[in-house]
Computed example of a mutant assay.
Amino acid sequence: MDKKSNEQWACRFTKVKAVVVELDELISRIKADHKIQTMMEEPLSMKTITRSTDTVILVKPKVDGTPVDVTCLLNEIAKLNVKFTAIPKANITWYKADSTEIKADDHFQIITDDNGQSTLTINDATLQDSQSYTARATHKVRFVVAKVNLNVKAPPKVEASQSMNDQSCVIGQGAQISWKFSGIEKPQVIWFFNDKPLPTNDHFQVAETGDKTSTLLIRQTELADQGVYTARAINTVGEAEAKTTLKIDCIKPAINTDLSPTLQVTKGETMTLNIGVSGTPKPNVVWMKSNDELTANDRIQVTIPTGDDDTYILTISNVQPEDQGEYSVKITHVSGSLKSNTCKVTVSSMS
């Protein structure tokens, strides 16, 4: 076979590297090409490949340094950086956690400089952006990937149209104040009363639910419980607070059953006077004889009602002539005062 004439013909085709007419030469070239292929597949960072008179240097891509995970606040800008080294320069693409390739738009921007540093910028970060991102550097020799995690955090937020409200309850009854907060990372909620930390005890109890609602329970409210209650939610990013002004309502006293106008008793017997008075909290009732306040002793007994009962009782045993006179009740309450009718008591001698 004429090698020279075939070389003249083959020179018109760039992909023909050589014309071989000898079997030994052909075997030698096959071995050389196989050696080059093996070198390209080995996990070495650099290859020097010689084909005839051409020398090509290939450096497979690798991650330069350790990518740093990023944390940003909700609606802020997040920048994720990865640097690759490769010869020739690698082509870098970014992917979301679900392997979707990221295309540049108003939300995502990708910039790669000549030094192999690629930056994925996420504008106005949302909670959905909180995930793992992969940068892939593709090269003639092979490809390599690097992962960067983005953690989007949000400070607590009051889940209500307004962070202040008013409540009221009747004194003696229970009160319940609830506020719901949102935020990445469950916030810790601390309660305050008139700007001072509120202790938890039998009177004040706090309950938390899975939807990040904090509820303050006040058992058997008192007038001293009236004031401003603040729920302050705190996480590692920030805090938020909501305020409730609690008003304790009282039920004004009322005389439901008044004293009888007159009462006649016999000396030595027991005298009983009853009056029915309601109100919340229970009013203070003082028994009077004329203008003098009666105090309990061996003969005089004053009974104060409990529970829903509203009957106040004055009992005088072994009635004597000096017990004769005008009896009345003076009623005082946080919301006002009242006075009963007068009962004229007559003590007669034993027949």
Rank of each mutant, 00 (worst) to 15 (best):
E76H: 12
D166C: 14
T311I: 14
Q220S: 14
M271W: 01
E25D: 09
S99V: 09
C11E: 01
K31G: 05
D166E: 15
S182Q: 06
Q117H: 10
Q117T: 14
L73H: 05
I313G: 00
I171F: 06
D166P: 03
H203V: 12
E326D: 11
I77P: 01
V277I: 15
W287Y: 06
N81R: 12
V70I: 13
K344R: 13
N291R: 09
D309R: 11
K35H: 07
K3I: 01
K62W: 08
H203C: 08
A296E: 13
G276A: 11
A125V: 15
P281F: 03
S351R: 10
S335L: 09
T71D: 05
C11V: 04
N235A: 11
T53N: 10
E322I: 15
E239C: 09
N115S: 14
F192A: 03
T270C: 10
S328F: 02
L198T: 02
S348V: 15
V144G: 05
L73T: 10
K282W: 02
M46R: 15
L198D: 05
D98C: 12
G336L: 06
I49N: 04
H34T: 14
K140F: 10
I304Q: 09
V152W: 02
L44I: 15
V59L: 09
V152P: 02
Q162K: 13
I110H: 03
V345G: 00
L80E: 00
P155M: 08
A10V: 00
T311P: 03
T55H: 06
Q264E: 14
I49L: 15
I49R: 00
I177Y: 02
T134M: 13
A242Q: 02
N151A: 10
I304W: 06
P61C: 01
K62R: 09
I313N: 01
G174F: 13
Q324L: 07
S290C: 07
S163E: 09
S351D: 05
V158E: 04
T315G: 04
V189T: 06
A97W: 12
E293G: 04
D54M: 13
K103M: 10
S349P: 02
